[in-house]
Design a protein around this nucleic acid. Sequence first.
DNA 1: TTTTGAATAT
DNA 2: TATATTCAAA
Length: 424
Amino acid sequence: MGSVSSELSLDLTPTFVPKTIASFLYNLSTIHTPSHKLSKLHDFLSKLEQELHKIHAFKRELPLSMLLLNDAILILKEESEKCRRESCVPVLEEFIPLKKEIDHSEENHDIDRDKNNECCRDKKNWMSSVQLWNTTTTTTNTTNDNNINNNASQPDHKVCSNQNKLETKKREEEEKSVTIAEDRFQSCSSNRNGGSAFMPFSTYSSVPVTKIKLAAAKDEKDETGLNRLCFLTPGVKSLREGFDSRGSRSSSSRAVSVSSSPPTVQTSLRSAPVQPQQIARKQRRCWSPELHRRFVNALQKLGGSQATPKQIRELMQVDGLTNDEVKSHLQKYRLHTRRVPAANGNESVVVLGGLWMSQEPYNGSSKGSSSASGSPQSPLHLATGSRGGTSRTEGDSMEDDDEDAKSESYSWKSHIHRHGQVGV
DNA sequence: TTTTGAATAT
DNA sequence: TATATTCAAA
């Protein structure tokens, strides 16, 4: 509290701020009282130094500002030294912190270190407000998106940032080994934002909520989900538990997720405040022709569109493929296959079945497929007699033959096209 | 509780 | 457009 008020008083003090150092010096020269002169000088000097402290953390982003400030400080210090020599007023010593004396005898870059000693508290206070956005630049969430599978390096950053924050806090209270803290702070910050000083706050919590939900729901089938869980910060973890305990996706769960977003004042320290609803999306599953071929194959075996995503997935035996992905693809598939019927009425049946028609008499509508219900296995012996018995996996050599024969039909577009053309 | 299909979002 | 996510229902 006290510190704040003092800070405020510093900031609010109505003081003369010259446009340039030159003008300041000129004004100074008009003052004939040495003590007055000196006090003015030091007043301005201290302001400059404060400024320097403030931007010190950003010295990488504001190198020129640093340069200018250092320059100005140097000049003023010289001036002040000159002034002091002229006046030789010992009284002033009382007002001038000893540090200054030492300062001006030393080199410019040493200023920083001294400053750290004397004002680290102030700086940290100031920085604490900056950290709101500065530290949150920590994890580059985008990369998280990109490589969901191997994001080993990610958590490091995060841990680092958290640690850093905690450490900063500690230091703030204990005021010890300042320089070390400073180094750390700098190195971390430089690591973090590696160039871009200010990044969106939203990147802070890199833990995608949906992932969590997914992992929870999926019973850790998903290893990526598992990995993710390991790296959760406690706070977020507890959030996850909230999800877990609920399980269902009913509106209540939503409510919880929303309620977590408003910042809790008590824990306003650091991480808690913002839970960005912005969540990392799952990496897009690319349905390569091969994948689609398997999909269609599975669909065949299951007797067409009556097949459920789960069945299809199991039949496809593709590593890492999820039900959701299959479901999504199936949805698209159905959409495509259903689009034609509108064009040519009952022919749709033929067109629809086109995929399987060659092997199987298929009369029902795609959905109803009354025949299919009775004969999910019929396509098996027809399409791939040998395969039906052995329940072969994908490596089949004969599959290639099949593939060649009906490669066209694996693309719904093509087979639709073929029949559709005739119909229209 | 899990799975599904449709709707919606990205 | 293609895929992901959400939602409600089975």
